[in-house]
């Protein structure tokens, strides 16, 4: 038989439903026969109920719209400031890599490797890297994966070195524009993978990141399988 002291020790856990069935039954038996403990239990419940009823002021009617709009505006300002740090901020900071491939999925899972084309970009500017995939047929549910070298990120995806999504390739040329920003100088490879029906093809691009804004236009690389 539980005494009052034991009961009170476990009463909080009981009220918060943090005890097992066996303890619960013992406490309930005690509460049904002990009025002081039952009063204590009811007071505990009252306290929790009263706390839940504590009112607060409602947020402003436009709170939802305002809070999202301010978030986007804040990051747009930060981005403009960041890009404006270099000379490139005054220049339209985009140039293009035309990486063309005849996308034809052979029945192999091996990743095809080619001589790697390269491009040089400068720090803290958005550069649009354009990839053109030439597909012999319509392909639904293709998976695109971009793997970035250290110091390079996709605009809007900071601190992510790998981004995947699902899309469709249509017969003919398909253009993919990747807005990239360099955060550190150095050299590394940007790799784009296209996967369909367990077959994969990769495109590699050497990225040279300089402090200077004299970015070089990459040569046109034509790859075919």
């Amino acid at each position: 038989m539980m005494n009052c002291q034991e009961n009170l020790r476990k009463l909080n856990d009981y009220t918060d439903a943090l005890i097992d069935d066996a303890d619960r039954r013992v406490i309930e038996a005690h509460l049904s026969s002990c009025e002081p403990c039952r009063t204590t239990y009811e007071n505990e419940q009252s306290l929790r109920e009263a706390l839940r009823q504590l009112t607060i002021e409602s947020p402003s009617s436009d709170f939802r719209e305002r809070v999202f709009a301010k978030t986007y505006a804040h990051h747009a300002r930060t981005k403009r400031f960041r890009y404006g740090m270099g000379l490139g901020g005054a220049i339209a900071a985009s140039f293009f890599l035309m990486l063309t491939s005849n996308l034809f999925f052979k029945p192999t899972q091996n990743i095809q490797q080619f001589d790697i084309p390269g491009m040089t970009i400068s720090l803290n500017e958005v550069h649009n890297v354009k990839l053109i995939f030439k597909s012999a047929q319509n392909l639904s549910k293709a998976t695109f994966t971009i793997v970035l070298p250290p110091g390079l990120e996709l605009d809007g995806y900071p601190d992510q070195s790998k981004i995947s999504w699902e899309g469709q390739l249509q017969q003919g040329e398909n253009l993919l524009v990747l807005p990239v920003i360099a955060r550190n100088t150095g050299t590394g490879e940007l790799t784009a993978y296209v996967t369909h029906n367990n077959k994969e093809k990769s495109f590699r691009l050497q990225m040279n990141i300089n402090h200077h804004q004299e970015s070089s236009l990459p040569h046109l690389a034509i790859q075919s399988v």
């Binding site: 709170f63 939802r64 999202f68 695109f144 809007g156 999504w165 040329e173 398909n174 253009l175 524009v177």
Partner: peptide, 25 residues
């Protein structure tokens, strides 16, 4: 003319952000 491949851009990004956060606001 090349078809434009869908890339998770700013517009859909914001939409997804609001879809995800809206119910918790």
């Amino acid at each position: 003319m090349a078809k434009i491949l869908g890339f998770p851009n700013q517009g859909s990004d914001q939409h997804n952000f609001e879809q995800l956060l809206g119910p918790h606001l």
